[in-house]
Computed example of a mutant assay.
Amino acid sequence: MNYTKVNNMLGWLCAIMATVVFILTAERTTSWWDTGEFIASAYKLQIVHQPGAPLFLMLQNIFSNFALGNVSQVAFWMNVGSAVCSGLTVLFLFWTITALAKKITYSDNRPLDRNQLIKIMGAGVVGSLAYSFSDTFWYSAVESEVYAMSSLCTAAVFWSILKWEVRANKPQADRWLIVIAYIIGLSIGVHLLNLLVIPAIALIIYFKKTERTTFWGISKAMLIGFGVLALILWGVIQYLIKFAAKFDLFFVNTLGLGFGSGILVFVVLIIGTLIYGIHYSIKKGKAALNTAILATCFILLGYSSFTMVLIRANANPSLNNNDPENIFSFLGYLSREQYESETVNKGPIL
């Protein structure tokens, strides 16, 4: 029996079943929390609460067009958008489960028999559909909130690293790592939940590339994974914008140049550094460095969805949280500066 055909067919069947149920049970208007804000903001491309979800708003705005001008149906169609994202999450979850089940039950030196195929596909069907109709996932699948789309990004990233794991020793296998980097960059414009997959990705790469695993090797891989997570969470999302703001402050207040000139110079420096890094890595034959720089480029490319926040804030929409119309207010928007900070290990300061 053709494993790939059965795997694809059953995966799509589970996804379609889940999507149909989600659409039939979707909220007809809005739920009693952030969904009202997200629906109103997506419909007119306005600015939601910090730190924003621009990619989510733009994609939900596409679904609002299915209302065909009937404003009373806009909320429902955005809820359908979450249902579709959740159905695709089930699809990637099915393929992830079957990939792991196949890895456990199947060896390359013997053919896959009918019983093994039934076990693998049975695990995928049971696992994906059980998750589909779990309380928390089903709840997020029927309303216009960021968690359905964030779950899709997370499922796609983990499925992609398993695709890389199978092809790791083949030419051009690392392009799957670039795909992962791009999805992670895009997911920042939805929700930061996706970043939690990075330590797991580091472990999968370690186990695949290392013949003899050790406790210290696993610990090192975990530390690298958390380091990459921290680099994206603070380095890319916040400090990149903070440096751009400092550049602009220096160019305007010290050098007397026009507003925004420092940002332009900063962007040129970043792009120039990345181009030089790619050229250097190719010239010196440093494959790992080349992959890391390309991954950084695609993370930044995905992160660029946040330009929507600056563009729409300058249009002064009705809902304009924090009014991030310039680089400094945008930095405050991303860093959630209006929220009170509390010590993590001691709780509220009394």
Rank of each mutant, 00 (worst) to 15 (best):
D113P: 01
S86E: 03
A75K: 01
D113I: 03
Y139C: 02
A148R: 03
Y147G: 00
S132A: 15
L88R: 04
F133S: 02
L129D: 06
S82F: 07
F133N: 01
V71P: 04
Q116C: 05
V74M: 06
F63K: 03
S132H: 07
Q116S: 14
V84Y: 12
L59D: 05
S132W: 08
A141W: 04
W77F: 15
F66S: 04
V74T: 10
A75H: 04
L129G: 04
L129C: 11
G122A: 14
W77L: 06
Y106N: 10
T136I: 12
A83Q: 07
A148F: 00
D108W: 08
L59E: 14
L112H: 09
W138K: 11
V74Q: 07
T105C: 12
P111I: 09
I104N: 08
T105A: 13
V74Y: 13
V146W: 01
I120A: 06
F76P: 02
S140I: 13
S82Y: 11
D113N: 13
L91A: 09
V126A: 15
V126Y: 04
N70P: 03
Y147N: 02
I118V: 14
S150Q: 05
Q116V: 09
Y106W: 14
L100C: 15
K103T: 07
S107E: 13
T96C: 02
A75E: 04
V74K: 14
Y147V: 00
W95M: 09
F76D: 00
N70R: 15
K119P: 00
V71Y: 08
V71N: 13
V74W: 12
N79I: 03
T105M: 15
V80T: 11
S151P: 02
S150F: 05
L93H: 01
G127E: 07
L112C: 12
P111K: 14
Y131Q: 01
V80A: 08
G81Y: 08
N79H: 01
G127V: 04
N109V: 06
R114F: 09
F94N: 11
S132G: 10
I62G: 08
S134Q: 12
G81C: 10
Q60L: 13
L93D: 01
G87Y: 05
G124D: 12
D113S: 06
V142E: 11
S134E: 10
F63E: 01
Y139N: 12
S134T: 06
V125C: 04
N79L: 08
I120Q: 07
A75N: 04
N109I: 05
A99S: 14
S64K: 14
L68E: 12
V90L: 14
D135A: 11
S150N: 08
I104P: 02
W77V: 01
E143C: 07
V71F: 09
S144P: 00
N70C: 07
D113F: 06
T98C: 10
Y106Q: 10
S144R: 00
P111H: 08
G124Y: 12
N65T: 12
I120P: 06
